[in-house]
């Protein structure tokens, strides 16, 4: 199958100025992957893993420090905003916070018709209105919502508006950056099912970013696990959840409480003291070394590479759990 998105050796370094001193943080460190047309690739990690930064670089809201991004076989890494314009309506992004991601001073119609005007897809007002209405119906909203302002909607409805805004210009690829983590579970399920429906309806390709293993499991075909800026494991969803190999992935799976009390009560035997408080700054070793329960001598001094341990199953670990 064709690769719609290809990312090679992507790196993002943030400079932080603190009282005159500049320090640097490597948020994304040498990340490479591809996304096949029509699939949903999951990106999972905790805060500080760099997963959000990866998403923003792909849709060019953040400038990569190093590396290369290809969209539909074209290098878009360093395109200027003007050169990027023909691509902008082909990839879109949905943000996490449904409260801050909509302009509070615009009505739903204005929010949804802007992409049409900007991309020059449709400039006639009457036809714009038709398309906006169609997009609204698509996400489960109605005519009466057209002239309301964002603050008149609930979180779930706002997220529907965000999704409609992303999809109205008919993109091929959408980055979903924790689209449901600010929502209640009952509403989350609505949005997840909506996203699934829209994907099949519009032949979309998704990059689904989340910290929630359950959500990733439900939505994705393939999953990458990120830890401190690196991909530590990547496999098909089925394989990853059935036989996780990297100690971090296994740790995550144990840490997430399941709503079934019989499953959950047994599993809460996580180390009680905090060992991961001091993040190792030695560049040479494995980044997960300070928290790892399977660490061996080699892990401290030698940084592991991402290796294809099983077919299509990549792991970055010296002492993988096989």
């Amino acid at each position: 199958m064709k690769h719609l998105v290809r990312v090679e050796n992507l790196k993002k370094i943030f400079k932080i100025r603190n009282q005159g001193r500049t320090s640097t943080i490597v948020a994304v460190d040498d990340v490479s992957f591809f996304i096949k047309k029509g699939e949903t690739l999951g990106l999972i990690g905790e805060s500080g893993s760099g997963k959000t930064t990866v998403g923003r670089m792909i849709v060019r809201l953040l400038e990569p420090s190093e590396g290369r991004i290809e969209f539909d076989s074209r290098d878009i890494t360093h395109l200027k905003e003007r050169e990027l314009k023909p691509f902008r309506n082909r990839f879109q992004i949905v943000f996490q916070d449904p409260y801050s991601s909509l302009n509070p001073r615009m009505t739903v119609f204005q929010i949804l018709s802007r992409p049409l005007s900007v991309f020059g897809v449709e400039n006639d007002r009457r036809k714009q209105k038709e398309r906006v209405l169609k997009a609204l119906y698509d996400v489960g909203l109605h005519d009466e919502h057209l002239n309301r302002y964002p603050h008149e909607f609930s979180g779930g409805q706002r997220q529907r508006i965000s999704i409609a805004r992303a999809l109205i210009s008919e993109p091929e690829f959408v980055v979903l950056d924790e689209p449901t983590s600010a929502l209640d579970v009952s509403v989350q399920a609505q949005i997840l099912n909506l996203l699934k429906y829209l994907k099949s309806e519009h032949n979309l390709t998704y990059l689904f970013i989340s910290h929630d293993l359950g959500v990733i499991h439900y939505m994705c075909d393939r999953v990458m696990v990120m830890y401190l800026g690196e991909i530590v494991e990547s496999a098909s969803t089925e394989e990853l959840f059935e036989s996780p190999i990297h100690p971090y992935t296994r740790f995550l799976m144990r840490a997430i409480p399941d709503p079934d009390p019989e499953v959950s009560t047994k599993e809460l035997e996580i180390s009680y003291t905090e060992r991961g408080s001091q993040v190792s700054h030695s560049d040479s070793g494995c980044k997960f070394f300070p928290r790892c329960d399977r660490a061996i001598k080699r892990c401290e001094g030698e940084h592991p590479e991402l290796v294809e341990i099983l077919p299509e199953h990549y792991v970055r670990c010296h002492n993988p759990h096989l």
């Binding site: 923003r56 849709v59 809201l61 990027l84 314009k85 902008r88 309506n89 879109q92 992004i93 943000f95 996490q96 916070d97 801050s100 991601s101 909509l102 302009n103 509070p104 802007r114 992409p115 900007v118 991309f119 965000s162 805004r165 992303a166 210009s169």
Partner: peptide
């Protein structure tokens, strides 16, 4: 720095707009 500004960039709005 609000997210809706990023969203506006994502739909290709110009800086002045």
């Amino acid at each position: 720095n609000k997210e809706y500004i990023e969203a506006a960039r994502a739909i290709g709005e110009s800086r002045l707009s």
